[in-house]
């Protein structure tokens, strides 16, 4: 199996305290140098809480944000010029808010035609044929084409967003919280549509979400992000059932579940570390029950274990232990 996407040392820092001239006051490292591979045909789930850098990562992958360091390799070709027009043919993006990702003053047809015209230079007849083909694939009626975005419900608008991403004929889709703005009954429709499309067109997905259950239901592998770095990555089935990084365990315990009594899984008042004043060593050490002096000094690297899991932790939980 080939790699659809290979990231090497990819990182992004933002300047804070901008000045007109001279160096900025300081940097915030939104994404720490990161290596990641996504195989062709795979769905890689990315979970993490707000501020963990998952959206920054996604924007870099489609060329909307230039990376600070590192390399993005898409289907074997290195792309480092951060030009969405070049990225667009290979990798596309589905936005979280379906309505605001559609220009309110354009008809759906105009929105759908843009990638066909700009990226593929198709003629009028070819465009029409391609659009009806895609609309059939995402179960949308063609009469919608002459309407404006505000006339659609969230679920329909998200289908249009997916259709637009497919129109570019990219084989890799970055799905950035694609269902979190939708109601549960509609959410399932969209998730199932995504699964069908993946089979039909042989797509590769990078599925970003904060909802662990959704990620587990759609992903082959899951990467857990904390404070801009991958802390654990492994097969979806096992990673939440049998977490090895204490943060993954915390996430799994925090997900509300019918029948489990309420208990705060950690001390109240614990917050994410301050990005302007990052903790020394492991970013999770202040929240971790197993933290040692070493954790407070050194930052653990991502290392593999025998079960095909990679963990960035000096004291990982026992793989056999029940959570």
């Amino acid at each position: 199996m080939t790699d659809a996407l290979k990231l090497t040392g990819l990182s992004k820092s933002f300047r804070v305290g901008k000045r007109s001239f001279g160096a900025p006051w300081s940097y915030v490292h939104a994404v720490q140098p990161l290596d990641l591979t996504v195989k062709t045909g795979e769905t890689l789930g990315i979970v993490g809480e707000s501020g963990c850098g998952k959206s920054t990562l996604a924007k870099m992958l489609v060329g909307l944000l230039p990376p600070s360091t590192g390399e993005i390799e898409i289907e074997g070709a290195v792309l480092d010029n951060a030009d969405p027009a070049i990225f667009g043919k290979r990798i596309q993006y589905v936005f979280q808010d379906p309505i605001s990702s559609l220009n309110p003053r354009k008809t759906i047809r105009q929105i759908m035609e843009a990638p066909l015209r700009r990226l593929h230079r198709l003629g009028k007849a070819e465009r029409a044929a391609r659009i009806s083909e895609i609309f059939a694939a995402v179960n949308l009626r063609e009469e919608f084409l002459d309407r404006y975005p505000h006339e659609f419900s969230g679920g329909q608008a998200q289908r249009i967003g997916i259709a637009r991403a497919l129109a570019a004929r990219a084989r890799i889709l970055i799905l950035d919280e694609p269902v979190s703005a939708l109601d549960v009954s509609v959410q399932a429709q969209v998730l199932n549509l995504l699964a069908d499309l993946k089979q039909e067109f042989g797509l590769t997905y990078l599925f970003i979400s904060h909802d662990l259950a959704v990620v587990e239901a759609v992903s082959d592998r899951v990467a857990v992000l904390y404070f801009g770095a991958v802390v654990e990555i492994g097969p979806a089935r096992e990673i939440f059932a049998n977490p090895r990084h204490p943060y993954t365990a915390l996430l799994a315990q925090s997900a509300p579940e019918v029948g489990r009594p309420i208990s705060a899984p950690e001390n109240a008042g614990v917050e994410l570390p301050d990005p302007l004043d990052p903790p020394k060593g492991c970013a999770f050490n202040e929240r971790c029950a197993f933290a040692t002096d070493r954790c407070r000094r050194e930052r653990p690297a991502l290392t593999g274990d025998r079960g095909g899991r990679e963990i960035a932790c000096f004291n990982p939980l026992d793989p056999a232990a029940e959570v």
Partner: peptide, 16 residues
């Protein structure tokens, strides 16, 4: 707005 990002990904240049 997100639709501007979407337009970039559809291959549109700044002028367009």
């Amino acid at each position: 707005k997100e639709f501007i990002d979407a337009a970039r990904l559809a291959g549109m240049r700044d002028r367009e």
